[in-house]
Amino acid sequence: MNITSISSQQVTPQYLKNLNTKPEAESSSFVVEEAVVNTKPKDSSALYKELSAKYDVRNSTFDEMVKISTALYEAGEISLLDHSFLTFDFERAEHNLRRLDPSRVSADFSLYETPTNAHGQRDWIAEYKARAEKDFSFGNLIGHQHSTKISNILERLSR
């Protein structure tokens, strides 16, 4: 048996790209002649001032939080992950849990850590701080870190 040579019978797996192909014709490529670079620094403080003048994160509904989060995400101030945390509808999730298994999920079950007032408004900073504490107590350090990050973003809106 000769180990140093490769057999001509060796089969190439079908999922590998064929390395013997020729490049496509140049007519199918394109050239970017000029790139436009935005050299103007973005003023995030103006966005935060505008949002804090319009909304009170210490007394907002979920729909208002969705609007705040969308504005921050579209401005590039928060990541898609942050946006998804801020816009996840826990009330809808609670409703689905009750509907799927009403015998195991009580009517007063809540995924939120803090209560709402009579108008459905909640202190979102307190909510995310409570979530961070709960995550930390369960050893969920990633959840703790992320909830703390969200509460810091919201505190910036409460100034």
Rank of each mutant, 00 (worst) to 15 (best):
Y48D: 15
Y48M: 15
Y48S: 13
K49V: 10
K49G: 12
K49I: 10
E50A: 11
E50F: 07
E50Q: 11
L51K: 03
L51A: 01
S52N: 13
S52F: 11
S52G: 14
A53S: 12
A53I: 05
A53F: 07
A53D: 15
K54E: 10
Y55W: 08
Y55D: 03
D56N: 09
D56K: 12
D56V: 06
V57A: 00
V57C: 01
V57L: 03
V57T: 00
R58S: 11
R58Q: 10
N59Y: 07
N59H: 10
N59K: 14
S60A: 13
S60T: 09
S60G: 03
T61S: 04
T61G: 05
T61D: 01
F62H: 04
F62N: 05
D63I: 09
E64L: 05
E64V: 03
M65I: 09
V66W: 04
V66E: 03
V66S: 05
V66Y: 08
K67V: 04
K67G: 01
I68E: 08
I68Q: 06
I68D: 00
I68G: 01
I68A: 06
I68M: 05
S69Q: 03
T70Y: 09
T70G: 02
T70E: 08
T70Q: 13
A71G: 01
A71C: 02
A71H: 02
L72I: 06
L72H: 04
Y73C: 11
Y73R: 12
Y73M: 13
A75Q: 01
A75Y: 05
A75S: 14
A75F: 11
G76R: 13
G76H: 06
G76A: 08
E77P: 10
E77V: 14
E77M: 14
E77R: 15
E77A: 14
I78N: 02
I78P: 00
I78A: 01
S79T: 10
S79K: 04
S79M: 06
S79I: 01
